[in-house]
Nucleic acid binder design. Structure first.
Lengths: 104, 104
DNA sequence: GCAGACAAGTTTGCAGTGCAAACTGTTCTT
DNA sequence: AAGAACAGTTTGCACTGCAAACTTGTCTGC
């Protein structure tokens, strides 16, 4: 059992579960690239149900990883998401951690 | 929304949940390196409770990713695990898929 | 102008998971 | 012979992820 492998195992077991959930990782990935994204667009590209997407964004918001902006287009509600600095850091930390976990 | 990014999202949402669970990923990582590993050794290096480790290995066995060998050392039972070919493939597939998911 | 279809999300109910405490069956100690 | 120690397994519970059902409001046909 090499020292390097122990570090690798340590990385695996310390993973941020909020980001680790595939649906949420996908959401953060889109947000990190796009800056500002609408609910229905996200739903479409991710292929999630509305309920499912709603709960995941709420969880990400609760973790402080994104913020929700509710406005109107004409008279219809539009929900828009934006990644926070904290969210960006969490995503980057997750990515580097997972690279270690995969063996660089 | 680039083509490349769509592929990336697709990778994220197709992840193998059996391997994705950190505890199980750690188990497979050890098994892939060591060929044959005992229950108590695994428990020690992973820092899991016995119950927890037992249920994860059962799940991995159910998925066909490892096999369990029960023998005795002297008169005490010893449970040993070994990764299967299927398990090795699943781990490698997971790793390449996750690299895509992280953006190469 | 109001009954129903449609839009954009949210809440609820349920099935599945991960976790550690409690249990099982055997062996060692004294 | 009684209890501590071993090596795991099973049980009970709290949490999650999911889609169906609901909510709040807007638009359309009659």
């Amino acid at each position: 059992m090499s020292k390097r492998q122990e570090t690798q195992l340590h990385s695996i077991l310390e993973i941020d579960r909020v980001v680790h959930e595939p649906a949420r990782l996908a959401i953060l990935t889109v947000l990190a690239a796009a800056e500002e994204v609408e609910f229905l667009f996200l739903q479409k590209v991710l292929g999630l149900t509305k309920g499912n997407l709603s709960s995941h964004t709420q969880k990400l918001e609760g973790a402080g990883y994104l913020e929700t902006l509710k406005t109107f287009r004409g008279r219809l509600p539009v929900t828009t998401f934006r990644i926070t600095e904290e969210g960006r850091h969490a995503l980057e930390a997750y990515q580097t951690q997972l690279r270690k976990a995969l063996g660089t």
